[in-house]
């Protein structure tokens, strides 16, 4: 079983390594960025039971910070991405600190409200370029050596970041901390009665999730050489919920599958204009009604039944 899993991971990695020779790299990188974003979001929803409706703030803000530090301050790409990630983590600390005091719908609404504040900040602030966003962010040289303007170099950098990010999430879920987090998700009063200050655990989960969402956002800026309001808009917060539910919440790779499906759909259906939104809405309804565990969740359940 353990070996089978290792072989599966190795096969996925191999697939990731050869994919750019068959598929347009920018599309792949978009899949990876949103995959990591959904995965980070799922750390909070699937393992801490907290539905954040403001994760766009972390994705978008990290994108702006990364773009600004690279473009205007001349940071190398690795430092720009790091700055974006750190900022998202700090923002997560502030938003999480206020939001974790409530649960359920109130938690979701507080995160939404605070994310809207971030949106308006980005709209009005000078360094974000307001409605134009930051355009033409130079990709530069990673560690001063690897030229990221080469599509393949950029792709493998993104792949490495994605693998690293997902690995951190996997490790967090399967750590002593992850155990406590799952117990809080399952039965919060009981976790308190065992002596755990649950708010602190939720806050750490929130900060980790925000920082990793930021890592995805900062990486995305380097890929598209662009940071714009789209990424801080609440649409993005909604989309990540859809990605996670579609792929399978509470599984490590489910959200990645959901993100890939959604990104590919949007890519194929660009010709249909706004109908994409209608179609994703339909998919969401079908997903919630017919297969609530999500694509990967249903597959895993099927496998469990067969064994």
């Amino acid at each position: 079983m353990k070996n089978l899993q290792t072989v599966g991971y190795a096969a996925l990695l191999l697939l990731g390594l050869v994919a750019p020779f068959a598929v347009y790299p920018v599309l792949l990188m978009k899949c990876l960025c949103f995959g990591l974003f959904a995965c980070a979001f799922n750390l909070l929803l699937g393992y801490a039971g907290l539905l954040s409706f403001g994760h766009a703030a972390f994705l978008g803000m990290a994108g702006y910070i990364c773009g600004y530090t690279v473009q205007s301050l001349g940071f190398p790409p690795e430092l720009g991405i790091l700055a974006g990630t750190a900022t998202a983590g700090l923002l997560g600390l502030a938003i999480g600190f206020l939001a974790i005091r409530r649960s359920g719908i109130y938690f979701a609404m507080i995160t939404l409200a605070l994310a809207q504040i971030v949106y308006f900040f980005c709209l009005k602030a000078q360094f974000t370029g307001a409605e134009d966003g930051l355009q033409g962010v130079p990709r530069g040289h990673l560690f001063g050596v690897f030229d990221l303007s080469q599509p393949l170099t950029m792709y493998y950098t993104v792949l490495a970041i994605f693998v690293g990010g997902v690995w951190i999430i996997h490790r967090t879920v399967h750590s002593p901390f992850g155990q406590i987090l799952k117990s809080i998700r399952d039965n919060e009063p009981r976790a308190i009665s065992l002596g755990y200050d649950v708010d602190r655990f939720k806050l750490l989960a929130f900060v980790l999730s925000a920082a990793l969402a930021g890592l995805a956002g900062a990486t995305k800026t380097m890929v598209f050489q662009l940071a714009s309001l789209t990424d801080v808009h609440w649409h993005q917060s909604g989309e990540v919920v859809l990605m996670t539910l579609l792929g399978g919440m509470g599984t490590i790779f489910g959200p990645v599958v959901g993100a890939i499906v959604l990104v590919l759909l949007q890519d194929w259906l660009t010709g249909f204009g706004s109908w994409v939104v209608v179609l994703t809405g339909l998919i969401f309804i079908i997903c919630v009604l017919a297969f609530r565990r999500g694509i990967l969740g249903e597959l895993l359940a099927l496998k469990a039944r067969m064994l």
């Binding site: 490790r171 967090t172 399967h174 750590s175 002593p176 901390f177 992850g178 155990q179 406590i180 065992l194 002596g195 755990y196 602190r200 655990f201 750490l204 980790l208």
Partner: peptide, 14 residues
């Protein structure tokens, strides 16, 4: 786990 003191260690293996 309460007595282990590693409840916040998200970087350690389970």
């Amino acid at each position: 786990q309460t007595r282990l003191g590693t409840a916040f260690h998200f970087w350690k293996s389970e």
